[in-house]
Nucleic acid binder design. Sequence first.
DNA 1: TTTGTTTTGAATGATTATGTCAAAAATACA
DNA 2: TGTATTTTTGACATAATCATTCAAAACAAA
Lengths: 99, 99
Amino acid sequence: MLSLGETIRKLREEKELPLRTVAAFLDIDQAILSKIERGQRNANREQVVKLAEFFKIKESDLLVSWLSDKLVYEIADEDVALKALQVAEEKVKYNKSKK
Amino acid sequence: MLSLGETIRKLREEKELPLRTVAAFLDIDQAILSKIERGQRNANREQVVKLAEFFKIKESDLLVSWLSDKLVYEIADEDVALKALQVAEEKVKYNKSKK
DNA sequence: TTTGTTTTGAATGATTATGTCAAAAATACA
DNA sequence: TGTATTTTTGACATAATCATTCAAAACAAA
């Protein structure tokens, strides 16, 4: 259950690439990428899509990783975090069924 | 499966109170409360707590409603919304077990 | 109409997101 | 060691988003 940051750091290190190379592909400063990999910054959607392209992995997998990180972050301090996630699931299912 | 806004509007109308009264208790402009009830604005945590107090309902129930609304909002446009919620659940469970 | 309530939108202020840059710290390795 | 390379950090800038206020418009009831 890796975070987005852990995932892309692992991929980058497997290929023995410096931050610079990946950051250039994303068209951002390497400092930002460093922070993304360590979870100090959030990537945005566009960056996630580009990362999937760069590493040739399934875009939806990386989006799930990114979105779930954001969700966890949003409720991390709440006692009712799990319950909120479950209710959110029901709401999404309901919205989908009626749309 | 009511949203926070629908919930508090229902409660307010049952008691036949104007926005003004509830807004005064929350110490906000009634325009904001109107928007919160209609889902055009997000309440903040403090407001949710006060709303539970005002309507004498369980605080955690209203917090769940509020948090789940926020979660749904955050992923509403994504194809992988459900998957992201499920992965987020696993991450929360994992974090809890290791803490 | 008159009165009270609710909704809307423009304007403003606050907060968050995003990025750059340069220096410090860590790492690799001749 | 010393030097080059890479990574991390933090100060700063700017843009985008969000929250709030206010007044006016729209609505509802008497």
